[in-house]
Design a binder for these strands. Structure first.
Length: 196
DNA sequence: AAGTGGATTGGCT
DNA sequence: GCCAATCCACTTG
């Protein structure tokens, strides 16, 4: 039996702030030759188009890096941050460069593989409690750029219920002017894998 | 062609 | 708490 089945492409057609909440509790799955690894999404951040100073698409910036944000929703926007790869879910209608950063997940399959990829960690919590950590644990890389998230090998799948959702400002964008205070970060309250 | 600065992490003080 | 790691997109000349 297949433990995970990808969502339909239409799942991603929600408005970005709604999709950012809807993604909580869903499974993020990556299949590789090493095996399958997956986590329940427990923390997201929305980045909304040309008027969001914290977004890479701020001001309508359109470059090879941001190009995927201008396409249809439900594709992967991966990019490098210092020594790490971060992953977003493209959202919004074509022409609207919006995306949702996956900030943390709770391991739900392939935990052994995650330990192998992450190297020594003090606690299980350290496996996936941050945007750079979870991509390494799941084996998500810059080569996943542009991939549809409703088909193997990288996809969102039906998840489990979320009791209560917390809301607050996004992390690491202190230089984004007034946008730094927008309450566009969402997390599952009480979940220990939330980055902070 | 060279300089600047990150949507981060982990190790050390 | 501070800071190096390490790379590349983007800006400026």
């Amino acid at each position: 039996m297949a433990p995970f089945r990808p969502v339909d492409a239409s799942f991603f057609e929600l408005p970005t702030l709604e999709l950012a909440r809807a993604l909580l509790g869903m499974a993020l799955v990556k299949e590789t030759e090493e095996g399958i690894a997956a986590g329940w999404i427990v923390e997201t951040e929305a980045y909304i188009g040309p008027h969001d100073r914290a977004a890479h698409s701020y001001g309508g910036r359109r470059t090879p890096r941001t190009e995927v944000m201008y396409g249809p929703p439900g594709h992967a926007y991966t990019y490098l941050m210092h020594t790490h790869c971060l992953m977003n879910v493209v959202s919004g209608k074509p022409g609207h460069p919006e995306a949702i950063l996956i900030r943390s997940v709770e391991p739900c399959a392939g935990v052994g593989l995650m330990y192998k990829r992450r190297g020594p960690v003090k606690k299980e919590r350290d496996l996936t409690s941050g945007p750079g950590k979870l991509t390494k644990a799941l084996g998500i890389t810059i080569r996943d750029y542009g991939r549809p998230l409703f088909l193997a090998p990288l996809y969102v799948a039906e998840g489990r219920p979320v009791r209560e959702i917390g809301t607050g400002p996004r992390i690491g964008i202190d230089n984004a002017g007034e946008a730094k205070d927008y309450p566009w970060r969402f997390w599952e309250k009480g979940n220990p894998f939330v980055s902070r």
